[in-house]
Nucleic acid binder design. Structure first.
Lengths: 134, 134
DNA sequence: CAGGATCCCATTCGATACTG
DNA sequence: CAGTATCGAATGGGATCCTG
């Protein structure tokens, strides 16, 4: 009976896993909270884009990450992928209706971020200054 | 002149770094898009909590991650950390006014997730079925 | 009770090279 | 042009032990 605490942790962890598996928010967060997904959705917000266009618009994303992100979004039904089998293949990505409903949410988040980034940066400076002093 | 493409990538990367450094949304996302930060903010939405309470409410977060997340949120000025030097130390965490303004945004995201999780899960099933078939 | 310090495994992501 | 495959570095995150 000495490991009661540890055992409890283990049980909590199992409960947590079950809870998480059923938690919609986290599952969704796993996709759209992704490093690139938000940028991609924004880049697609005002119309379809070709793969190459996205690479340009989201300069900095490696081709690997871009493809990977697009696959995830496609899997979740947020974007469609349309292949036109011409001579150099052409692939277009476009937001689905569901994907479009996400845009305002992201916009709200973006708005909040832009409104409060000043305070946050200031807070970080203060905090870091205090830590150095301590 | 043969490595033009590579060089362009490198230049894009530098521009990207500069852009990212100045992009408020991404900086904020780095904090609140974190695996645990959202849960913590939610757990604090309706009042201050002690460290131990948070551990219980967010069962599954290791103590390390909880502390780390709280530190980040504190640094960003979203929560306050109050130490009461009693015999067993007591530490309370509470959302700042700024932190509270984030709650509705998170709630919107949560609402969207809960509304659309069904479609998303269905889409994943369909997608996976197609992949297996291919 | 709160949380710092370590160890260590799993995943992420970028760079590079290759295919249709 | 779009995408896949592989490798290696970096990071995230959990388990454990220790302090005030």
């Amino acid at each position: 009976m000495t490991k009661t605490a540890d055992q409890r942790r283990g049980e909590e962890r199992i409960l947590y896993d079950a809870f998480m598996a059923a938690c919609p928010t986290r599952q969704v967060f796993a996709t759209i909270g992704d490093k690139w997904a938000g940028l991609v959705v924004n880049a697609l917000a005002d119309g379809p884009r070709r793969h190459g266009e996205l690479r340009t618009r989201i300069a900095g994303a490696s081709q690997k990450m871009l493809t990977q992100t697009l696959r995830t979004l496609e899997r979740d039904g947020l974007v469609t992928r349309t292949v036109t089998p011409s001579v150099p293949v052409r692939v277009d990505y476009e937001l689905t209706p569901l994907g479009h409903t996400l845009v305002p949410i992201l916009a709200a988040l973006k708005g909040w971020a832009e409104s409060n980034i000043g305070d946050i940066l200031q807070s970080r400076e203060d905090y870091d200054a205090k830590v150095v002093a301590a």
